[in-house]
């Protein structure tokens, strides 16, 4: 058995770091862990993902459609793009703020986050919506979307870790001057009552 975790978003949002923290927490607990992510040209504003598996007798870091226990989505349209990977009864944590691609500004093609969120509502057994822009503003840094989402994922109970376990690996991974900020970000959803 394994715990299958999918992180998705747009290049530059920090999905890779969040995936690294989950992996580090798994290593800390001596779980077997494998992951795979987008690297290269697609990173420049393209759709990016990280597959992460924690468990035993793993053969591949990738998993098939309908197998993810949790999707941590940094962007609502990207959550919909990867929704078919979610298993029945799976959890979705989603940042409600859309990121419009350059093609959207050019062609005037716009999309409504609400439409994406409605779709996710129908797809996921458990959906947590987080306005990360609001969270970042409240926390005083534009760069903590990943930590906020990670905290929400832990809180949902769909990751095999406690908040204290994630917090301890996070503190080791970030520079001293960002520890206090990221601790607040990790606990943001708890305190915000989301």
């Amino acid at each position: 058995m394994s715990s299958n975790i999918l992180l998705c978003g747009v290049g530059g949002q920090g999905t890779v770091l969040a995936s690294k923290l989950i992996a580090a927490a798994a290593v800390e607990k001596n779980y077997e862990v494998m992951s795979a992510e987008t690297i290269g040209m697609a990173q420049k504003g393209g759709s990016v993902f990280s597959f992460l598996r924690i468990g035993s007798s793993l053969y591949s870091p990738m998993f098939g459609k309908g197998s993810a226990d949790i999707i941590i989505a940094f962007e609502p349209a990207e959550a919909v793009r990867m929704a078919e990977y979610l298993k029945d009864g799976g959890t979705v944590i989603v940042n409600t703020r859309p990121i419009m691609p350059v093609t959207a500004s050019l062609g005037g093609f716009d999309y409504k986050a609400e439409k994406m969120l409605d779709y996710l509502e129908k797809t996921a057994a458990q959906l947590t919506r987080i306005d990360c822009k609001k969270a970042c503003d409240a926390l005083g840094s534009p760069r903590v979307t990943n930590t906020v989402l990670l905290g929400a994922a832990v809180q949902s109970g769909a990751l095999p870790f406690t908040m204290a376990e994630i917090e301890s690996v996070m503190l080791k991974a970030v520079k001293p001057q960002f520890r206090e900020l990221n601790t607040r970000a990790l606990h943001y959803c708890e305190y915000a009552g989301q």
């Binding site: 040209m41 990173q43 197998s67 929704a83 691609p101 093609f109």
Partner: peptide, 22 residues
């Protein structure tokens, strides 16, 4: 492929995100 049929059929149109110069 498991689960597929459980997805709502009216999947909204998704934006394409071709890589661009930073």
């Amino acid at each position: 492929v498991e689960h597929k049929e459980n997805l709502p059929s009216e999947k909204p149109n998704l934006p394409v995100r071709p890589p661009v110069l930073c």
